[in-house]
């Protein structure tokens, strides 16, 4: 088991803390608080510019709501599988932890793939990054979200590798849970983006 390597190292997470939350978990929550403002700024920029397309297609001309709904559904389902992975990790069930982490990563990758497809389709329909304010702000906002999902996928795959090699020091379940927090955050942000960007007509 990975527990063998636990010496008295930099693993402060296992120590008693004032709040009772481990440093790592509190740090992740604090970081996510900061991320809210990052997306807040990007979403505000998009909302300001959403109707402004002097050139190129307008939003309602190119959005493919059914397609994006399906990829949103895929992303939301990945939150469910993430919960299952955290639950399995808490039970110290390596096999199922790995299974659900992998499924989560695949679902996330499907979403990113859908986004790449969508960007390509929009570009073909004449909406480039520099075409209009709508184009610039749309690609920036959804692009930032896509990068966040991609980073999440990398973290999930790293977790899979680490669980497989028993390489997660300290509390394994908590490391999975931290990635889970990040993953759920990215999903929640997508709910906001999907509603504001796609569903509410400009």
């Amino acid at each position: 088991m990975a527990d063998t390597v636990v010496a008295h190292g930099a693993d402060h997470g296992a120590h008693h803390t004032t709040t009772g939350l481990s440093n790592n978990k509190l740090g992740m929550w604090v970081f996510l608080g900061s991320e809210c403002l990052l997306f807040g700024g990007l979403i505000s920029t998009y909302m300001l510019y959403r109707g402004r397309a002097n050139a190129g297609p307008q939003p309602d001309q190119i959005y493919d709501i059914p397609f994006t709904s399906v990829s949103s559904f895929v992303l939301l389902m990945s939150s469910l599988t993430m919960v299952l992975a955290v639950s399995a990790a808490n039970r110290k069930d390596d096999r199922n932890t790995n299974l659900w982490l992998t499924v989560t990563a695949v679902l996330g990758a499907t979403f990113v793939g859908g986004q790449v497809y969508e960007f390509t389709a929009f570009y073909r329909e004449g909406l480039g990054f520099t075409t209009s304010l709508f184009g610039s702000s749309f690609y920036t906002l959804t692009g930032f979200h896509g990068v966040h999902v991609t980073v999440g996928i990398i973290m999930l795959m790293a977790l899979v590798g680490m669980v497989r090699r028993n390489r997660i020091p300290g509390s394994k379940a908590e490391t999975v849970e931290l990635v889970g927090l990040y993953w759920h955050f990215v999903d929640i942000i997508w709910i906001v983006i999907f509603t504001l960007v796609y569903l509410i007509p400009s």
Binding site: G33, E35, L37, G40, G41, F129, T130, L133, G135
Partner: peptide
């Protein structure tokens, strides 16, 4: 809470200067 806001602003500006975005 303040740094991410300037981060967004700086990204917009650098996308405009480097990649010709229109912000």
């Amino acid at each position: 809470f303040a740094m991410p806001v300037i981060t967004v602003a700086l990204f917009l500006l650098s996308f405009q200067r480097t990649f010709d975005a229109t912000f």
